[in-house]
Design a protein around this nucleic acid. Structure first.
Length: 184
DNA sequence: CGTTGGATTGGCT
DNA sequence: GCCAATCCAACGC
């Protein structure tokens, strides 16, 4: 499963002559036959990228002010993606802090919208190639071993709320607020 | 064409 | 813990 395999991988961003790196610590899977997925009702201008080839970036705007980023995963025409929910800053943290307006490392990328803000990802970046790209891409890093992976229901959705398709690095202080820390 | 509510966050109680 | 902020896609009439 791509969502699980992305834990421990590195998200790399070239921005303003600097290089930002963060280790992915929280993801969620969204599939075609999934009532909670943007692709569930079919192809639209907004979710177009989800139906393209795997390895590309799907960015959407929500709550009137936030962007979230996904890695497209399915076959062409399928409409599946993995939401990147949180990451642990590795380098370029000064740039992230400036973009976020906070200094605490824990607040830089610990949420889907925080991550896009720290990495300078918005509508313009929708559709970028995350495998062969040179602005934003995912590097191998070190895949988190099974013993370090926790699984649970996805955050902030109403439909298919019980399906355990959220993955995170157990015990990481860099996971999102809506994540495991907020639950009993 | 009007209404509704969202894959969130930060600030206030 | 609760709620406003603020745009826009989806859906109902």
């Amino acid at each position: 499963m791509v969502a699980r395999d992305l834990l421990g991988r590195l998200l790399v961003r070239r921005l303003d002559g600097e290089v930002l790196v963060a280790r992915i610590v929280e993801t969620e899977a969204y599939q075609q036959d999934d009532p909670a997925s943007h692709s569930y009702a079919g192809r639209t201008a907004r979710n177009e990228v989800m139906f393209g080839p795997a390895g590309f970036l799907y960015v959407y705007f929500t709550y009137g002010m936030h962007y979230c980023m996904n890695v497209v995963t399915g076959r062409v025409g399928e409409g599946s993606a993995v939401l990147l929910r949180a990451a642990e800053p590795v380098s370029g943290t000064a740039v992230m802090a400036r973009r976020r307006g906070v200094s605490s490392a824990r607040l830089l990328c610990s949420g889907p919208a925080r991550l896009t803000q720290a990495f300078g990802v918005a509508r313009t970046e929708n559709g970028l190639d995350l495998v062969d790209g040179n602005e934003l891409w995912i590097a191998a890093g070190r895949r988190t071993p099974d013993v370090g992976v926790a699984v649970g229901p996805r955050v902030g959705i109403r439909r298919a709320a019980d399906v355990p398709w959220r993955y995170w690095v157990a015990g990481s202080p860099f996971v999102s607020r809506g994540g495991p820390a907020a639950r009993g």
